[in-house]
């Protein structure tokens, strides 16, 4: 469906749309415009009595067409950075730490997908941690892994004086390390 009314030569000035639309078409198109405009605005509105009431009507349309977004880019705050790491413990008892983000090129969209995947795992470990752990066991089979421990790194504040002192945002003093899951690897 492509809503075309006419392909008449361009007119100068404000064209009276009713001259080229039938009244019914004009009304229908105007209704569509009003509907979609309200949907666009509503999707971005914060919760309130009015917006919640309207959302019950507009929700199927907004959800179906994936118009639902609050457009809060780095808002209201930038938020802490999170990084995923994991530790592979091998049969000899040695521990190997891996930081997947270090292997990804920032120029490739794959870096964002992998980052989002790890973010999802950190946000909902009860749902995703086991599958990730199992895949890491297979990925590092050559190390003869015994267990994989999943780690969440949360960034703390980092200030200009820290940078000027030669420190890095991911130095141990600026991060909080939290194990959030572990997997026992099958014997290889």
């Amino acid at each position: 469906m492509s809503i075309e009314v006419s392909a008449a030569p361009p007119q100068t000035g404000d064209a009276a749309a009713s001259q080229r639309f039938s009244p019914i078409a004009y009304a229908a198109l105007s209704l569509l415009l009003a509907w979609h405009t309200v949907a666009m605005v509503l999707a971005a509105l914060p919760e309130s009595r009015i917006s919640d009431a309207l959302r019950t009507v507009f929700s199927p349309y907004i959800t179906l067409l994936r118009l639902d977004n609050d457009w809060g880019f780095f808002a209201p705050n930038v938020g802490s950075g999170y990084q995923f790491r994991y530790i592979v413990k091998d049969a000899a008892g040695a521990e190997h730490t891996f930081t997947p983000a270090d292997t990804l090129s920032r120029f490739s969209p794959a870096s964002i997908w992998f980052r989002d995947r790890y973010r999802a795992v950190m946000a909902a470990p009860e749902t995703f941690a086991k599958a990730l752990g199992d895949s890491l066991c297979r990925q590092h089979a050559k190390l003869h892994p015994v267990s994989i421990t999943l780690i969440e790194i949360e960034q703390d504040d980092f200030w200009p004086e820290d940078k000027l002192a030669g420190k890095s945002p991911l130095d141990p003093e600026f991060i909080t390390t939290t194990p959030f899951g572990s997997t026992q690897c099958p014997a290889t």
């Binding site: 971005a44 609050d70 457009w71 809060g72 880019f73 780095f74 808002a75 209201p76 705050n77 930038v78 938020g79 950075g81 999170y82 990084q83 983000a101 980052r115 790194i153 960034q155 980092f158 200009p160 940078k163 945002p169 991911l170």
Partner: peptide, 28 residues
């Protein structure tokens, strides 16, 4: 919405937001 949302956040009100973006692990 993007602008008004930002204005409610302390990072943006204090002028620290862009600094925080540049040390954020995802955008460093």
């Amino acid at each position: 919405v993007s602008a008004t949302d930002k204005m409610t956040g302390e990072d943006w009100r204090t002028g620290e937001a862009v600094w925080r973006v540049f040390y954020h692990v995802d955008y460093s």
